[in-house]
Design a protein around this nucleic acid. Structure first.
Length: 260
DNA sequence: ATGTCGATACTTTATCGA
């Protein structure tokens, strides 16, 4: 089973690129972030005609996540528990059945958190704590679990082209990295790190300053796996080529193959 | 040092978020 994550930076602007990539890459499950669309305006029909079931948790203009799945959904839950007042659409989770068992998949658009002296940074850290608490609960099921998304976290200096330039940024602050480590240390496996130890494997290149042409990237899109999913991990890759397309997202898809 | 893009609205240009 092939499971992918991609921050598409707006479904309206990216629909043709997303369809083209789905036809090429043929993931069984695709977790998309930053759809920037209300549920009722999301072009679910385009994906249904490609054979996908569609679960969407959107809002007008900003944020928004979706899961596209060829196998049917058993169960879908919108929103990250832990703060009833949080109305930002950043988390969606589904159980997906296959002939060889079920996998629980979450699509995550973790808050960016910049600027760090605004209320956005404490919101990011609080959101990460809520994610940690929720994942601790999910791990008790002892089932294959894939947490896929744009974490807006650069885990280590080897995940950024110029660590000094990013010092102090909300994606790279020690508090951010500590919160990410606490999540991983619940017992998760960082799939790309497990398959590619060499570092400098980027998933995002800013639109500005020729970042793509210079390979000035960041690794901020991650697939974190429960032990039962990690045991089935065959492969993890980044589809960098989409970043070179016309009208690209600033993020590239990342995908895993599981024996499932 | 600067450089971009997408969505929105009392819309065609400014503002916000990233």
């Amino acid at each position: 089973m092939k499971i992918a994550t991609w921050n598409i930076n707006g479904i309206k602007a990216r629909i043709d690129n997303v369809v083209k990539w789905l036809e090429m890459a043929e993931p069984d499950v695709a977790c998309l972030q930053e759809i920037k669309s209300a549920d009722e305006n999301f072009p679910a029909g385009r994906f249904e005609s490609l054979g996908y079931n569609v679960a969407v948790h959107g809002q007008k203009a900003f944020n928004g996540v979706t899961i596209l799945s060829k196998p049917p959904f058993d169960d879908v839950a919108s929103g990250l528990p832990g703060d009833a007042k949080d109305d930002q659409a950043r988390y969606l989770e589904a159980v997906i059945s296959t002939a060889d068992g079920a996998v629980r998949v979450a699509t995550i658009y973790l808050p960016n958190g910049n600027p760090v002296d605004s209320d956005k940074y404490p919101y990011k850290l609080a959101w990460m704590k809520r994610l940690e608490d929720h994942v601790r609960d999910l791990l008790e099921y002892e089932e294959p679990l894939v947490l896929a998304g744009d974490y807006n976290v650069i885990p280590v200096p080897e995940d950024v082209h110029d660590p000094e330039a990013w010092a102090g940024d909300a994606l790279f602050r020690p508090e951010t990295q500590d919160a990410f480590r606490r999540l991983v240390h619940l017992g998760l496996t960082d799939a790309l790190r497990a398959c590619h130890g060499e570092g400098h494997q980027y998933t995002f290149w800013d639109y500005q300053a020729g970042a793509w042409q210079k390979d000035n990237g960041l690794r901020i899109d991650h697939l974190l796996l429960s032990p039962q999913a990690a045991d089935r991990l065959k492969r993890c890759e980044i589809d960098r080529f989409t970043r070179g397309w016309e009208k690209p997202s600033d993020h590239a898809p990342v995908w895993i193959e599981l024996r499932l």
